[in-house]
């Protein structure tokens, strides 16, 4: 458990921020996702790691110094786990999406103090295309039948049930991702398969805006949104983007939208460092920090407002990185390998 020295490969001079190795855990199963959750502990709450394999989800608690112990495993043998859905500001709760090819159901995994036992409960079934957890124990998902698309928000109860449902007006195109607008409890944005940004009023269910952003950067998905000075800023990524001569291989982009006019302008562009790093595969955003797994097996971190790569975790002899997730308000990066290894880094 000695801090591992890093050799970041940076495109433009010395790093200003860096990643500092903190600890490692190893799940014996192949990882499909990793996340961090707050969990009640003596005298307060503590950050715990959640690892997901195809048939089980495990909760890990910190044991000093720098060690992790698995405290519970929820067995989910019927349908493969696809992803963990982060629920901000919750405690003692894990949300997972299960399915084959696409999400077929969403479940809550939790500890019940009433029965002093761990349990899981079904929240939603369907052909679910996108799901996001919002503040205040809310979950939004889009699902599609042959005839129509359904977008719904559910309010979750602390016992794992669903308290209240709100239907949101669906856009014509399939919704690919959602992001809550930070600081605006009733505003939600989504990206669509038709290269649009859509905006909803969560209280009324109204679809307020459908803003097309052109086909220059196809198949983007939204990670984060906030409103400032009358503009809506959205952080996008391009999971299937190819390298172009003018701007290299794109990872994240910050775009400003004027919701009144539907016009947009690029604010900042974050590229994969030149060299053998490869292309963007998948990533996570917290505040102004973006982290992504690249096709080379490295994890790269960017300051999104400056468009600058600040650190790179190269693939080690033990294998390629496959997962990169932020935890604890962006202060901790979880990097995961398919073999079940998860390393925590302080950023």
């Amino acid at each position: 458990d000695v801090a591992e020295p890093l050799t970041p490969v940076l495109p433009d001079g010395p790093r200003e921020e860096s990643l500092q190795f903190v600890s490692e855990l190893k799940d014996p199963s192949c990882s499909v996702d990793v996340s961090a959750v707050w969990w009640a502990a003596a005298g307060g709450r503590e950050l715990r790691v959640v690892t997901a394999s195809e048939s089980a989800v495990s909760l890990w608690e910190p044991r000093a110094p720098c060690c992790w112990a698995r405290v519970h495993t929820w067995r989910l043998p019927e349908i493969p786990v696809i992803q963990i859905v982060p629920l901000p500001d919750t405690c003692n709760l894990v949300c997972v999406a299960l399915g084959e090819l696409e999400i077929g159901e969403i479940r809550l995994l939790l500890y019940s103090s009433e029965t002093d036992s761990f349990k899981h409960s079904l929240v939603k079934t369907g052909n679910i295309k996108a799901v996001v957890g919002l503040k205040d124990w809310r979950l939004v998902s889009s699902s599609r039948t042959m005839q129509e698309q359904q977008v719904e928000m559910v309010s979750l109860s602390e016992t794992g049930g669903s308290k209240d449902w709100q239907t949101l007006m669906p856009p014509e195109e399939t919704v690919t991702a959602f992001a809550e607008v930070e600081g605006m409890r009733e505003a939600l944005v989504g990206t669509t398969a038709g290269n649009s940004i859509v905006v909803w009023n969560l209280k009324t269910g109204q679809l307020l805006r459908n803003m097309h952003v052109g086909y220059s950067y196809p198949a983007f998905i939204c990670h984060r949104a906030y409103s400032d000075s009358g503009l809506l800023f959205v952080v996008l990524s391009h999971p299937h983007a190819k390298e172009s001569e003018s701007c290299g291989s794109p990872a994240f982009r910050v775009v400003a939208f004027n919701p009144r006019t539907g016009r947009s302008a690029g604010v900042m562009f974050s590229c994969v460092p030149p060299g053998p790093a490869g292309r963007y595969l998948e990533g996570d955003v917290w505040d102004t920090a973006g982290a992504a797994v690249l096709t080379s097996g490295a994890v790269a971190v960017w300051d999104l407002l400056r468009g600058r790569c600040t650190a790179v975790l190269p693939p080690g002899p033990a294998g390629h990185w496959a997962l990169a997730r932020w935890a604890a308000g962006g202060a901790v990066l979880l990097a995961g390998r398919r073999d079940g290894t998860v390393q925590l880094y302080r950023y």
């Binding site: 009324t204 307020l208 503009l231 009144r260 006019t261 604010v267």
Partner: peptide
């Protein structure tokens, strides 16, 4: 980006669009 690129900006865009959009 400037206001001329993006058109007239309103600080109350969310409330205004909610009032204008179909219920």
């Amino acid at each position: 980006c400037s206001e001329s690129d993006l058109g007239p900006i309103s600080l109350n865009w969310f409330e205004e669009l909610s009032a204008e959009a179909p219920p």
